[in-house]
Design a protein around this nucleic acid. Structure first.
Length: 927
RNA sequence: GCCCGAGUGGUGGAAUUGGUAGACACGCAGGACUUAAAAUCCUGUGACCAUUAGGUCGUGCGGGUUCAAGUCCCGCCUCGGGUACCA
């Protein structure tokens, strides 16, 4: 019987499905293991061969854990809200729910063919009301909580209301948008509306006028991680800064915990580093500079308090509130003109013109709290309103931006740090600021002679003692803008009364997305939900018109998989206590600053509430590499319809043209297929090498326009799912990015056929029950050891080669013993489940190989009686000798020196040293 | 600019703790079987020198540590990723 992959793969997929082999339930008698894939957004293009890479890896690990006795949760679902479906709806009028459903079904069909062990009963879709009910619920909870910096924890807002009524803000340290100070009496004197407005300043989900990334082309606001280099990540449209009243999540409150939490998770260093940079913790001091002849005080943040004697001017961000208060009447016109000018520039222009120095003098002078010097206050857009206090003390001698500014406007520069071993020099001769990370303080009054480190410490102490400032930690991480002016997203469970937002009662959830006539903003410029009829509460209060962003639905989906049908909680206690957290999470690194931050934030909040039992959601995380495209080219001789083969192209004047990789095999063009590919080429002529047309190639992004998209369905059609699975793993290390190259897939397919032939002798199953020989057992146990080790360290590519070695060896030994082959199938089952299941059942097993036992390693089969030692002279390997394994190093040394091959290398030389590393190597130093 | 990561045959890659560099595949060359093809199997395959025996060189470049370096250290180069007027 031949290895008929098509028939047997279909047969076993049906069997697994019919018998619910992958269904999992809470089972307290077995340890749990939770393996999660980042769920896909089902795009219209379907899966290409790069998508399943991570899914295959997680599937292998899930099956491996199950064979080792774990109760494995391995679910899948869809991130179903998103821009492409909505953009398509705008163009065609087709409801995004329909587009989404179609795409999703196509994804499911494609996924099913690969033979994954998902428990589809637990599927979640973010656009499903039963699911987004809990997204809305979590939002309500965030609205009803604030963050206490002292307890480092979220607390119910009702507690805060009580505290305000008793003691005002006295002694509180709260995460907030703006520092407010009021007494209990002041609080009580405020109207209900004023109190609500104040509470918004503390809520974890809050509505506020904030500077947002506005993307006119998409007609919506975007979060920071959705903007890169001044354009939207999706679509690449320009983004501008704009103040809008929007919902935000107070993610910044959790900055410190998001940072320290990274120490307790098993993620790659690079990913942790990306998150650390994004959170951007910087420790420094906040100092107050009084303004001359004014009550105004300027708060600045600096990490280099020690350089305060080098401050020669101050700079305010153009958006700073102080600008208005400080500007003198003489400077008013100039300042207004400058502000107007900066407002007009988009974020992108600002980024592109980083080198361009611009600014304006405010007319005001600040007083250096240490030197009492009067220093001018300038306004410039190189200072950002959103970071620190929106104001800086400029030290041009030791900061390159301040230096450029000082040069441009001819402001004084004063050196306060001299580098190690250097001397103070005249700043007028400098071309750039001087690095001051290390060195000695000069021109710095009380700090003179101290090192930079000592200087920082002493300044901090001094300003604290003098009441000039305080030690402060700043974070780059901003709150997440949570409103989108779009249709295809979760509606907010929010209504407005007297212009203040209120939450719907939980009993009203889910608030389902209404139908609308067009997926466009209203004539008045309201978001699409403004078109919905009766979009109001039962009492007639208007509902929120914005919807939630894409990351809302993906923030807690891993919790829902634990208990997907629960209609009284996001996740029930029993399920959460059993499944706890995700043991292994596999997905792309592109989510490092988006989903993986939001999701950790969301989880920590739920943890604070007591809704979940784990503080961190994802214990171990692996980023699979990107699969790039590998394009092929043909070379058309200019002005003709003749194509010249790759290695002959230099002799002609040619144009390089992309050719569909699906009609190229091992870089050889299928000429007949090429002629049919496009009518233009029907009469093409070819200049061949030998009798072949060889194509050129290049690594590019996988995309339709490069004709390098490979569909997994086509690979499965030709080779089967098991070959696809093995080949994707064989391609290289999981975490490494690599181009998809179908060259080489034959090798993996051949391996499966060879495996099949170990069991089948022509048409007959020919497996014997004879006892295995020591050699055969050695091959098996060597493989058990290698595969177990390699699976544990996610080195799946080396697993595949270990299987090849094993099957080649067994083939050489003509081994057809059940004692060897049956355990081999259990090892292979996670990688190639279909063929393993078929052969497993052919051996007479009545239960699925999915529930077989992982073979146990017996080291005694691996013990060798002799060791083959490589013998090196001065580090160069010269020959090998076989020696008994129980020889001690002294005996080994004697045996080697007595060996005939050694004579040649020793002759005429002195033996200086002999190094014997037992069971490894012998090195003889001669000279 | 700053922070990560990586550079190994014609190609993908292996070498887990410093111990035989190039496992396993692809490709290529030659051969067996076949009328032929497909399929399958066998042999060879880092470069250079040498008829053979064998030798020299070789893991981006330059230095170093070590009996021994792809692996550790120092200085560069190239590529990939992240991030940026963040004070």
């Amino acid at each position: 019987m031949e290895y008929n992959f098509k028939e047997l793969e279909q047969k076993w997929q049906k069997f697994w499905n019919d018998n619910q082999i992958y269904k999992v339930e809470v089972d307290n008698s077995r340890p749990k293991y939770y393996v999660l894939d980042m769920f896909p957004y089902p795009s219209g293009a379907g899966l290409h061969v790069g998508h399943p890479l991570g899914y295959i890896a997680s599937d292998i690990y899930s099956r491996y854990k199950r064979l080792n006795g774990f109760n494995v949760l391995h679910p899948m679902g869809y991130d179903a809200y998103g821009l492409p479906a909505e953009q398509y709806a705008i163009q065609t009028g087709q409801h995004p729910a329909i587009t989404t459903e179609n795409n999703l079904n196509r994804y499911r069909q494609q996924l099913d063919k690969i033979g994954f062990c998902y428990d589809w009963d637990r599927e979640v879709k973010t656009c499903d009301p039963d699911y987004y009910k809990w997204t809305q619920w979590a939002f309500i909870q965030m609205f009803n909580h604030y963050y206490c910096n002292q307890a480092m924890q979220a607390r119910p807002i009702s507690e805060l209301v009580d505290v305000f009524a008793q003691t005002g803000t006295e002694g509180l340290d709260l995460a907030c948008s703006e520092e407010l100070i009021f007494t209990a009496d002041e609080w009580k004197a405020k109207s209900d509306k004023e109190q609500q407005e104040i509470l918004l300043n503390y809520r974890l989900a809050y509505l506020a006028d904030t500077m947002v990334n506005w993307c006119p082309a998409l007609g919506t606001v975007l979060a920071n991680d959705e903007v890169k280099e001044g354009v939207s990540v999706r679509g690449g449209h320009p983004v501008e800064q704009k103040v809008m009243r929007q919902w935000s999540l107070r993610v910044s409150a959790y900055a410190e915990r998001l940072l320290t939490g990274l120490d307790n998770v098993d993620w790659s260093d690079s990913l942790k580093e990306i998150q650390r940079n994004w959170i951007g913790r910087s420790e420094g001091a906040e100092m107050t500079f009084k303004v001359k002849e004014s009550d105004v005080e300027m708060e600045i943040f600096t990490t280099r308090a020690d350089t305060v004697y080098g401050v020669t001017f101050m700079v305010l961000a153009p958006e700073s509130e102080l600008v208005d208060q400080l500007t003198t009447s003489e400077q008013r016109a100039a300042v207004d003109a400058y502000i107007l000018e900066t407002k007009k520039r988009t974020e992108r222009e600002r980024l592109a013109e980083v080198k361009k120095v611009s600014g304006v003098f405010s007319g005001a002078y600040a007083i250096n709290p240490l030197t009492k010097e009067e220093i001018p206050v300038w306004i410039s857009d190189y200072v950002l309103a959103g970071y620190g206090t929106g104001a800086i003390m400029a030290v041009p001698a030791h900061d390159s931006r301040d230096f450029a500014f000082a040069k441009h406007f001819d402001l004084p520069i004063r050196q306060v740090v001299i580098p190690e071993g250097g001397e103070a020099t005249d700043p007028a001769t400098w071309n750039d600021s001087i690095d001051s990370k290390e060195g000695t303080m000069v021109n710095s009054g009380i700090l003179d002679g101290l090192s930079v480190k000592e200087g920082i410490a002493k300044t901090k102490e001094y300003i604290k003692a003098e009441g000039i400032g305080k030690v402060k930690v700043n974070y780059r991480l901003r709150d997440a803008i949570f409103s989108r002016q779009r249709y295809w997203g979760e509606p907010f469970p929010v209504y407005y009364k007297d212009d203040m937002p209120y939450m719907l009662d939980e009993s009203k959830l889910p608030l389902t997305l209404p139908e609308i006539d067009k997926y466009l903003p209203t004539e008045q410029g309201e978001p699409p939900l403004g078109r919905a009829k009766n979009w109001q509460t039962e009492d007639g209060y208007p509902l929120e018109l914005n919807t939630m962003p894409g990351f809302a639905g993906s923030s807690a989906y891993y919790l829902r998989y634990m208990d997907p049908k629960n209609d009284t909680a996001l996740v029930g206690k029993e399920a959460n206590e059993y499944w706890q957290d995700v043991d292994l999470y596999i997905g792309g690194t592109e989510h490092a600053t988006g989903h993986l931050i939001y999701s950790r934030f969301w989880n920590k909040f739920l943890y604070d509430m007591g809704a979940v039992i784990k503080d961190e959601p994802y214990k171990k995380l692996i980023n699979q590499g990107m699969i790039q495209g590998r394009s092929n080219f043909v070379y058309r001789v200019k002005g003709s319809n003749t194509f010249v083969s790759y290695n002959l192209r230099k002799d002609y004047d040619v144009t390089e043209i992309h050719v569909d990789v699906n009609i190229v095999r091992n870089d050889e063009l299928d000429i007949e297929a090429f002629k049919k590919w496009s009518p233009d080429y029907a009469n093409a002529e070819f200049i061949l090498e030998g009798d072949k047309y060889i194509c050129g190639w290049a690594v590019e992004k996988m995309s339709k326009s490069m004709y390098n998209v490979v569909n997994p369905d086509d690979i499965i059609e030709e080779y089967g799912a098991d070959t696809l699975r093995l080949y994707e793993m064989f391609l290289g290390p999981l975490e490494q990015s690599k181009p998809w190259d179908t060259n080489g897939i034959d090798g993996v397919h051949k391996f499966l056929k060879k495996t099949w032939r170990l069991f089948y002798n022509s048409d007959q199953l020919a497996v014997s029950n004879d006892k295995a020989t020591p050699d055969e057992l050695k091959v098996l146990h060597r493989t058990i050891k290698k595969i177990t080790d390699d699976v544990e360290r996610f080195s799946f590519n080396t697993c595949v080669s270990a299987f090849m070695i094993c099957v080649n060896d067994l083939n050489d030994l003509k081994c057809n013993k059940r004692e060897i082959l049956e355990p081999l199938l259990a090892l292979l089952a996670p990688f190639a489940p279909h063929i393993s299941e078929e052969l497993w059942s052919q051996l007479g097993n009545t239960t699925s190989v999915v529930d077989a036992q992982w073979p146990e390693l017996n080291e005694s089969h691996l013990v060798e009686s002799t060791v083959t030692y490589p013998v090196s002279f001065n580090g160069k390997m010269r020959f090998k000798i076989d020696l008994p394994a129980d020889m001690n190093p002294k005996q080994v040394e004697e045996a080697v020196l007595a060996h005939q091959s050694a004579a040649k290398w020793i002759e005429g030389k002195t033996i200086r040293k002999v190094i014997v590393v037992p069971k490894k190597i012998i090195n003889i130093v001669v000279g």
